[in-house]
Deep mutational scan, measured.
Amino acid sequence: MDETGKELVLALYDYQEKSPREVTMKKGDILTLLNSTNKDSWKVEVKITVNGKTYERQGFVPAAYVKKL
């Protein structure tokens, strides 16, 4: 869990989004878990840094590609 009590997951593999509802992640990324009720895909939040500014983006990733921490 992070400092706000949200559950975290670790990306086990790289994943490139295939639709606007998904998010891209790299192996080793730590993501905030938002919903894990679907056995196939979990909703997560990723933090992306562009030019020194951090943005948050929500979307789905394959459940088999992440592990709860």
Rank of each mutant, 00 (worst) to 15 (best):
M1C: 15
M1T: 13
D2A: 14
E3V: 13
E3C: 15
T4G: 13
T4I: 12
G5C: 15
G5I: 13
E7Y: 12
E7G: 11
L8K: 11
L8D: 01
V9E: 01
V9P: 00
V9I: 07
V9N: 00
V9Y: 06
V9D: 00
L10I: 15
Y13A: 10
D14N: 07
D14T: 05
Q16V: 14
Q16Y: 14
E17D: 03
E17S: 15
K18S: 10
P20H: 09
P20F: 08
P20C: 11
R21G: 15
T24G: 08
M25D: 00
K26M: 08
K27D: 02
K27V: 07
K27T: 05
G28F: 04
D29P: 00
D29A: 06
L31H: 02
L31V: 05
L31M: 13
T32W: 12
T32F: 09
L33P: 00
L33V: 05
L34V: 10
L34Q: 02
L34F: 03
L34S: 01
S36E: 12
T37A: 11
N38W: 06
N38K: 07
K39Y: 08
D40T: 11
S41D: 06
K43M: 15
K43P: 00
K43G: 04
V44K: 00
V44F: 03
V44A: 00
E45D: 03
V46H: 07
K47W: 09
I48L: 09
T49W: 10
V50E: 10
V50C: 12
N51T: 04
N51H: 09
G52A: 04
G52S: 05
K53V: 14
K53Y: 12
K53C: 12
T54G: 04
T54V: 13
T54Y: 08
T54R: 07
Y55E: 09
E56C: 15
E56A: 15
Q58L: 05
Q58Y: 06
Q58M: 07
Q58F: 06
Q58T: 11
F60W: 15
F60Y: 14
F60N: 04
F60G: 00
F60M: 08
V61E: 00
V61L: 03
P62Q: 05
P62K: 06
P62A: 05
P62G: 03
P62M: 05
A63P: 06
A64W: 10
A64L: 09
A64I: 11
V66Y: 01
V66I: 08
K67M: 14
K67S: 09
K67R: 13
K67W: 07
K67I: 14
K67N: 04
K67D: 05
K67E: 11
K68R: 13
L69C: 13
